[in-house]
């Protein structure tokens, strides 16, 4: 068990560049809910920056899709935690994710035009990949509540779709 968990964390670490490896222990349901919600909010914030900065039609459409989907998923997540009487609990993984995202946003803010578009979309591919890695290897296997697990599983399918969508947008920009 110990070995399996650390392998999962190591895998998540490789994909995310660190954020998911902060908590050595298996995350609890309130922590998992917080991490998943935070990841969604990060992508919404990034998309809103793109909507304000980009002039590329494809990039704008993609960013609007991200806002719409992640807002819908996060609303469902909030409804679920309310129903389950779970209070999402802040934790090192969430904090680390938020910190990394803020740094990335500051970096992207300095770019403009095609350079910005490329960097935003490349980060969207990387970010969704990291979240998907963590969902698959750490968050879903760690979730106790069946409804939370099911929501995360649907979330994984949605985010895998976003990852492919981002890859398509990236390919079209070359």
């Amino acid at each position: 068990m110990r070995v399996r968990l650390s392998t999962a964390i190591a895998a998540a670490f490789l994909l995310s560049g660190g954020a998911f490896a902060q908590d050595a222990a298996k995350p609890t349901d309130p922590q998992i809910a917080h991490i998943a919600y935070t990841a969604g909010q990060i992508d919404i914030t990034a998309a809103k920056q793109a909507i304000a900065k980009s002039k590329n039609k494809e990039v704008l459409a993609f960013a609007e899709d991200m806002v719409r989907d992640h807002e819908a998923v996060n609303k469902q997540a909030l409804d679920l935690v309310k129903k389950l009487n779970v209070t999402p609990e802040d934790n090192n993984t969430s904090r680390s994710l938020a910190k990394q995202a803020a740094d990335k946003q500051a970096e992207l803010a300095k770019l403009n035009g095609a350079a910005y578009d490329k960097a935003y979309v490349a980060n969207e591919v990387a970010f969704h990949k990291a979240v998907n890695g963590a969902l698959g290897t750490l968050l879903i296997p760690s979730a106790n509540n069946a409804e939370l697990k099911s929501l995360l599983e649907t979330g994984l399918k949605i985010f895998q779709g976003h990852e492919q969508h981002a890859e398509h947008v990236a390919a079209a920009m070359k």
Partner: peptide, 8 residues
């Protein structure tokens, strides 16, 4: 396929 989620 779905344009928003090309895995569909």
């Amino acid at each position: 396929y779905c344009r928003f989620h090309p895995n569909m």
